[in-house]
Simulated assay, not measured.
Amino acid sequence: MYYQIAICDDSKIDTQYITNFVKCWAQEANISVHIDAFPSAEAFLFHYEEKKDYDILLLDVEMGAMNGVTLAKTLRKENDTIQIVFLTGYSDYISEGYEVAALHYLLKPVQKEKLFSVLYRALDKVKKNEKILNLETGSEILRIPIYEIRYADVTGNYVTIHAKKDYTLKMTLGKLEKLLDERFYRAGRSVIVNITNISRVTKAEIKLRDGTVIALPRGAYEGINRAIINMR
């Protein structure tokens, strides 16, 4: 198996610089990669219409008519799994990365050790996105990709898993929690939320990137913020 990596940067020098590092990292990690480079956000999107299987995107923030943040927002409308790493000469865009679930920001000039560390994290997340949750409902077995699960809540003896579809099963939230991984946080007794889908947290509620609003129990604010920080 090989991994698809895209580099989008309007600087030919920076693109070659990053490409060389990615090749060195792949050799160190003993994996095969295919690298495509794009000089603009528009060029990437034109190619992406035909080829939507990129695993990692190394994305320059400051580009021409469409900047990297706008490109990332466009991608996130339909793609939750691609790992986006912003490359920038400024730290002003960090808050924007929260909205598009960027994996990390790397300040230019990018240091080899920091890039390698982030690429290993990205690879780990790509592999986790391949995990499947198998649940028996009595008459059938449901196979739900874990990354698709946005949140789960409980009513009485039933848990509803909100993914691309909603699945309601007779089970406890505690049992479901044990089947999930560190991407998920139990915010009180009645809800588990996928941290990577969160766009905003207040002391009263959690807002997901699809617009879903989940009430946050009293006293849960600090815990979920720590969980978000630890995921980054």
Results as ranks from 00 to 15, higher is better:
118 V>R: 14
111 Q>C: 02
179 L>K: 12
139 S>R: 09
101 A>Y: 13
152 A>E: 05
151 Y>K: 05
177 E>R: 14
84 I>N: 08
93 Y>A: 10
62 E>F: 02
167 Y>S: 14
67 N>Y: 05
130 E>N: 00
52 K>G: 13
96 E>K: 10
151 Y>I: 03
106 L>I: 00
113 E>V: 04
156 G>Q: 07
123 L>T: 06
86 F>N: 12
101 A>D: 15
94 I>N: 06
99 E>H: 11
153 D>L: 08
118 V>H: 10
66 M>E: 09
113 E>Q: 14
56 I>W: 06
172 T>D: 08
105 Y>Q: 13
118 V>S: 10
117 S>A: 15
131 K>M: 09
142 L>G: 11
62 E>Q: 10
161 I>P: 01
65 A>R: 13
69 V>D: 15
118 V>W: 04
153 D>Y: 12
86 F>H: 15
76 R>H: 05
78 E>S: 15
124 D>I: 04
62 E>R: 10
92 D>C: 05
81 T>E: 00
65 A>E: 13
131 K>V: 07
74 T>M: 03
105 Y>V: 14
55 D>N: 06
150 R>I: 00
115 L>V: 04
168 T>Q: 05
137 T>Q: 01
169 L>M: 02
124 D>V: 04
154 V>Q: 09
76 R>E: 01
72 A>Y: 05
70 T>H: 02
72 A>L: 06
154 V>M: 11
176 L>E: 07
91 S>C: 01
83 Q>W: 00
173 L>E: 08
178 K>S: 11
95 S>N: 12
103 L>Q: 10
77 K>A: 12
139 S>P: 00
142 L>R: 05
63 M>A: 13
54 Y>Q: 01
82 I>V: 11
126 V>H: 02
123 L>G: 11
93 Y>Q: 10
51 K>T: 04
105 Y>W: 12
98 Y>D: 07
79 N>D: 14
101 A>N: 15
137 T>M: 00
110 V>Y: 02
157 N>H: 12
96 E>R: 09
98 Y>H: 12
68 G>W: 09
97 G>M: 15
125 K>F: 04
137 T>G: 03
159 V>K: 07
123 L>V: 01
182 E>D: 15
175 K>D: 02
101 A>M: 09
172 T>G: 15
121 R>Y: 08
177 E>K: 15
175 K>P: 00
77 K>G: 14
74 T>V: 01
112 K>G: 06
50 E>T: 09
182 E>F: 05
52 K>Y: 02
125 K>D: 03
140 E>K: 08
107 L>W: 02
61 V>M: 11
68 G>Y: 07
128 K>V: 09
178 K>E: 15
115 L>R: 07
90 Y>N: 12
123 L>P: 02
78 E>D: 15
171 M>Y: 00
63 M>S: 14
110 V>L: 07
137 T>I: 01
99 E>Y: 06
90 Y>G: 07
114 K>S: 09
134 N>K: 14
84 I>T: 14
137 T>Y: 01
85 V>L: 04
53 D>Y: 05
129 N>D: 10
140 E>L: 03
176 L>C: 03
92 D>E: 14
74 T>S: 09
159 V>P: 05
73 K>E: 14
168 T>S: 14
169 L>C: 13
63 M>N: 13
78 E>V: 11
